[in-house]
Amino acid sequence: MVVTQASPPRLSRWLMAALPYVAAVVISFLAAGVFIAVMGFNVLRAYETILFTSFRTPNGFIQTLLKFVPLTLQALAFTVPLAAGKFNIGGEGQMIVGAIGATAVGILFAGAPGVLLLPSVLLASVLAGALWAAIPGWLLYRFGINEILSTVLMNFVSFQLINYVATEIWPDPAAGHPTTVPIGEGALLPLLIRRPPLHLGFLLTIVVAVLVYIYVTRTVYGYELVATGANPRAAQVYGIPVQVLSVLALVLGGAMAGLAGGVEVAGIHRRLIEGLQSNYLTLGILAGLIAKGRVVAVPFVAFFLSVLEVGASAMQRTMMIPGEMVIIVEAFIVLFILLSEVIRRR
């Protein structure tokens, strides 16, 4: 067989790589614009609100960074198992259980000094999230049960668990919504910026993202993870313990989702509140899919989605356009990015 046609030079290849992303975003926004116009809203004002709310005021920007923290952690919780070919759809439950773990330690040892309490609270969230993910991991390892199903079902279990903790174990009777009493002062994350407040979790997230990046791309364990995701059978034939790695990847994902819960408790809410997981799982998975599973791209995509998210809630507040609009736009971005792949293959 004869191969024709040399590969194109480097610069145009970079442009070719960027083009689909730009095109996907533009097309998705255009499609949403048509929809917004049909509903009878001002399209340009909607665009402006979505894209620029984050950058107009310091408060808007800090809001964006605060969304960025759990969103990035959730995105990594999805992406790391994905590198091994496993779908972790259980980040929501892992975050909730992580938050419960953090709250439990924060309440039980409320009097402990901060140097001890804060690390324990965060560690508890990491362990709780990891444990919650270890259950589907074990079911996969031992019985071959599809991890998509088991992780998602664990979410529904966690919804009841958080409700139980917040209404039966440490309820705050004054709150109108299932909420626990506050955690100890020492458990709170220190602030990086006072006004508007940005907590240390931001830095922590950056560190986690960098560590994950090094782990996946620079270590032999990361190599084995990637090989497992690329072809588990071949990886196994060449001596890589794929089943153990798959479980490990899920547990690692759970740990990061759990940390997201811990950071939300210790940095934002200072207590456990039902619903604190918000829609970060959805956003995290969408971020992971838009990044096409590339760990290096995840924080950037997560930041972009945080901007959209802050813009969407502003849009809902000021223009009465439902915020779900943005989720649909993001799902479309995923589809269009994948579509561009198909076009390039031809």
């Binding site: 779908f87 759809i89 998975i285 969408l286 899919l289 779900e324 609009m325 993001e330 799902a331 994948l338």
Partner: peptide, 20 residues
């Protein structure tokens, strides 16, 4: 295209659309 990825994207899009 990958069935799980498309399925997930459609799940999010439809779930979002339902409340929208």
């Amino acid at each position: 295209m990958d069935q799980f990825v498309i399925g997930l994207a459609l799940f999010f899009a439809t779930a979002g659309f339902s409340s929208l």
